[in-house]
Design a protein around this nucleic acid. Sequence first.
DNA 1: AGACTAATGCGACTTTTGTCGCATGAGCAG
DNA 2: CTGCTCATGCGACAAAAGTCGCATTAGTCT
Lengths: 218, 218
Amino acid sequence: MTRGDTKRNYSCIMSSDTSDTGNARPGGRTARNTTAVLQATLDHLGEHGYQRISVDLIAAHSGVHKATIYRRWGGVDGLLTHALEWSASLPWEPARTGALHSDLVALNTEVAEGFTVAPERRVSYAAIAAAFESEAAAAALRTFMADRHRRSAVLVSEAVARGEAPEGTDAEEVVRAAVAPIYHRLLVCREPVEAAHVRRAARIAADAAAAGAFLAED
Amino acid sequence: MTRGDTKRNYSCIMSSDTSDTGNARPGGRTARNTTAVLQATLDHLGEHGYQRISVDLIAAHSGVHKATIYRRWGGVDGLLTHALEWSASLPWEPARTGALHSDLVALNTEVAEGFTVAPERRVSYAAIAAAFESEAAAAALRTFMADRHRRSAVLVSEAVARGEAPEGTDAEEVVRAAVAPIYHRLLVCREPVEAAHVRRAARIAADAAAAGAFLAED
DNA sequence: AGACTAATGCGACTTTTGTCGCATGAGCAG
DNA sequence: CTGCTCATGCGACAAAAGTCGCATTAGTCT
């Protein structure tokens, strides 16, 4: 099994098109290797998850030599870090439903599914897990999450414009408040997320926003 | 450096007294080994964190042979799992301040400090990280967290008794709602937790509880 | 087209991690 | 006190992870 057999395109964090990496000498082979290796990494994660991953496996699966992977990515952590950094550059925007509460329900649902539906769930877990292994991965996760929250903030801005929350509401903080219970339940409590949790978290965040709980503190 | 040099006693999840493990032949040496190994594990975590840990290191540091550790605990995961399971059995109860909001502020502060103040922070991170490595560790974390939330729930029950929240409020869910933003910020966003975040999370949870957001859904 | 050079492939090597069989000695029962 | 037995220590081994120098190849520049 060698390079070039791009199997699937997973959603969001997993899709392909690993083209643009800001390397010196970006010419054909380097780019092809990058694609092959990162695609193999995502494929492996999607199929076998975070635990069984190793550089040797990715090397065999991608057709790129082990030493090359160590040189360019430094190890498994680097692979995950790079995959995460790259995925942060993909287009994404939150779904609109017309009201803040239901927007947040939709957002929370998407988050929960990202950690529930295979194969994407394994990739999502890997992204979080990697952040515990290396500072670089943690930084990548920080950037990725900040970006997601920034993009999601429009939901709140638009709600403010519609008069659902007061002017001066910290939009990103509302988003964080809404999704936090989902992540908490999945990654810390290690318990399943039910629809009621999704709804309640969205409800509380929306109500708090309406009540002005996210205005700048004095 | 051999066994028996119990160095420090960290708070909470890190303290010593690794006596009672339900082994067959619980006699002297086995118990001493258990203590030595788990203490060495916690010491190492507190000093160097999760990343650099290995069975060989713990073996050298505890004076217990490598093979014995692999046999009894199975590997690094098992060490962390066992340490976490054991720490769940330690006494702990939340601080009382007289009002739900300030109780939750205190709770959130304790959580945040558990992930901020050395050496305990490294142990806390390790506990979460281990859950990504093995299902056993995940189960241990689930148990530990469920226990913490159960114990913290009295804060809410007492608040209900004082009339601060309606009868029928799901106490544990209020606790989870209060602490979730802290964990989310620390472990997912990978951003520092400020006093304002602690306060806001407590405020929102307390207000939502008062408003009846945690009554059983119909 | 032809030379220059960075990246890669290659494979041998070191280090780390995990396993196994066997002898020993420490607890436990009588 | 005496023997029995299970956990341990021990060291050799196997497997995996990671490193290194060197020859080669594929882009790039002129």
